[in-house]
Design a protein around this nucleic acid. Sequence first.
DNA 1: GACCTGCTGCGGTGTG
Length: 877
Amino acid sequence: MTARVRPDAPKAAARGVALSAPAPHAWFAERGWRPAAFQREVWAAIAAGRSGLLHADTGAGKTYAVWLGALMAFADAGAAPLPARAGAARAQPLRVLWLTPMRALAADTLQALQAPLAALAPDWRVGSRTGDTGSSERAAQARRLPSGLVTTPESLSLLLARADAPRELASVRLVVVDEWHEMLGNKRGVQVQLALARLRTWVPDLCVWGLSATLGNLDEALATLLGDNAGDGVLVRGPREKALRIDTLLPARPERFPWAGHLGKRMVPQVAEEIEHSGTTLVFTNTRSQAELWYQALLDLRPDWAGLIALHHGSLDRAVRAWVEAGLRAGTLKAVVCTSSLDLGVDFLPVERVLQIGSAKGVARLLQRAGRSGHAPGRASRITLVPTHSLELIEAAAVRDAVSSGQVEARPPPDKPLDVLVQHLVTVALGGGFRPEALYDEVRSTCSYRELTPAEWQWCLEFVRQGGPSLTAYPEYRRVLADDAGVWRVPDARLARRHRMNIGTIVSDASMTVRYWQRGGQGGALGTVEEGFIARLAPGDVFLFAGRPLELVRVEQMTAYVRRAGAGRPAVPRWNGGRMPLSSELADAFVARLTRAAQGELDVPEMQAAAPLLAVQAAWSALPVTGTLLIETLRTREGWHAYLYPFAGRLAHMGLASLLAWRIGRRQPATFSLAVNDYGLELLSATPVDWRAVFAEGLLDESAVLEDALASLNAGELRLRRFREIARIAGLVVQGPPHARQSSRQLQASASLFFRVFEQYDRANLLLSQAEREVLSQELDVARLRQTLVRMQAARQVWIELKHVSPFAFALMVERFREKLSTEKLGDRVARMLAQLEAAAGGERGAAEPTDVVFALGDTPARKRAGRGPRRPRRRS
DNA sequence: GACCTGCTGCGGTGTG
């Protein structure tokens, strides 16, 4: 193998990487491959035994990953030249572990690796191992692992739990973590960190490489991947991102475009038009029910597209989704309406257009989705934003600004989640056992646990030894015991099986399978919906799911049996999914846009389309711009309203709203209704509040924010919810085997029981405090909340006494009505509000009376029936 | 009494 000096690697040189990289093997040369600079950089680093992180933008990642996979063959060849090994009788032992976050990616990766590996290293066998792996392959792997193994973090943990793990895994030379950005910020990533620490103990000079898409904290991503060895890591950047085009589908009549709402059905005809004139299109929506509704709406408009457009989201059965994916690959589908379920995964070459309905909520997500189009080399990616209300026009302009200035979100790794550690302890006890002192050092070599205190460590040991003080009486919580030699092991095969069935950190929602009803047998599975939704239906009711109206036939054993239903007005399932807030990066770009608009700069089509709304906002109130805190107050029949726009995302706003309400309530008795969205929040009191006086009294003080936030919310309920997940991960409650799985309701009940027991008898239980920490950081976004308070204090306050509900306030008002809907359908009510607002906005501004909307909202059904108009406002002095 | 916000991802069963 020849070496070649590479003159152009300033970055690598700065970090001290060897400058020589092997030339491509003849097999590659014959195929015309000329490695790019960054590929050589990675290659050289691996040849030098260094670890690192390769960052390449979406769309190119897969390809690079494959090259990296080929590189590992060369890395290994350093020890034994390829030609000599070609005829080797004995296959290589496990050399390379390749981790992917998705089973589907494992299959793809394997396929891509097979040809180059067969040519370069014929004595290598490659295989994959995921939950999909068949029993014969499993049996073969139990005898002998392949030389290159593509697997998931969970399956790797299962490998670590094998008694022969130390011997079997000691031959590993290189671990590649694909899509590291997907795992870095969550507990799956923590599980990967722990597994890597384990492997490093057996293989001190283990080479570890991460592959990552665009990320705001690349250095941290590298450090987290490598733990204590980070000092030696190399960060390699791929070529500058490919051409990316972000445009917006502007509403036909911007001045009539709604100020609130999220479905965006008004845009259906325009979207259909775009689909009509494009190649294969992905239509991303933010929620599963929104995907269902959009799919239906498109079909209603274009019945001739039946069979040409499809639906894809996480609650659909895997077989259904596989069919859609195959259709995409084959290019037989014109469009697919989907959720994040198609963010990752198979490279769909034929995808030409990507449409994003509603806010993408973050820059990284937008880039990820844009990257799904124009996958072929030399083709640009294009994403078209489809706003669902007027404020999203501004967001569209903002997100493009953020992309061009490289403002991408960071994903911070979780801070020592003890549930994951507890699970890992049992895994390690199964996989050959451990000595606490040595394992403590190993665990602390990871980034997430480097601050783990001896007391916390002891607590975890005790917890796996006997379940902590309150569970000592139960044998199933005596999971790990020290043997005579002082090695901690799992003493019981039954406990071992129980643990293996519970490995992993993903905890799913309570859900029920939906199946076609068939006499004398089970019909095909369509997917899953939440138990709570089905519970509200009676047999005969119709709901929309998997893109078709279904009639509920009966419910049996966690399965809802259905048949096709005719036309009608179906219900749409609701899933209590995640609640992604607008990212700080995007919010900042949003405010920057408003600030420029306030200076008269409307230089892009989106801002021009938003101009009517901005004009009304400016005339009736003011634009919330950088450095100011806009506080709108309003007096209606409902009471005393205050609207604030901190732009901190809905999670922080929720915390902030309840915090403010609670602090005001401490000064004077008051009850508040709260409403939040990603832009701001509303406080509404039925009794008089002197807002200015209240805000003057240190209401925005950021000290004691933790205590106040917890006190102000129903923190108990939030903590319990969080604790349920923790209990599953820590192995306190287990699902049981697939054939006799407990219902999620049962699981929840037992988790709640533990919660209460711990609260009463074991207050020091660290899993309880972890639940609290997770509530604060993940449900309330406390760091952002605190930051926001600081920023609000420093800002200049702009007080506006509203006469009309301002456009920004309008969205919040709608939000609140969603919560407590009475006699009127939300849609009707919003439509009426809109009509009146538009009338007010369209008429002579001075002439409009301060009535309309606000007071119409206070209209009672009785008055409406009596045909009387809205009551006149009772004006305050 | 419906509802028109709320994403994604994995794993296990068996033994000659």
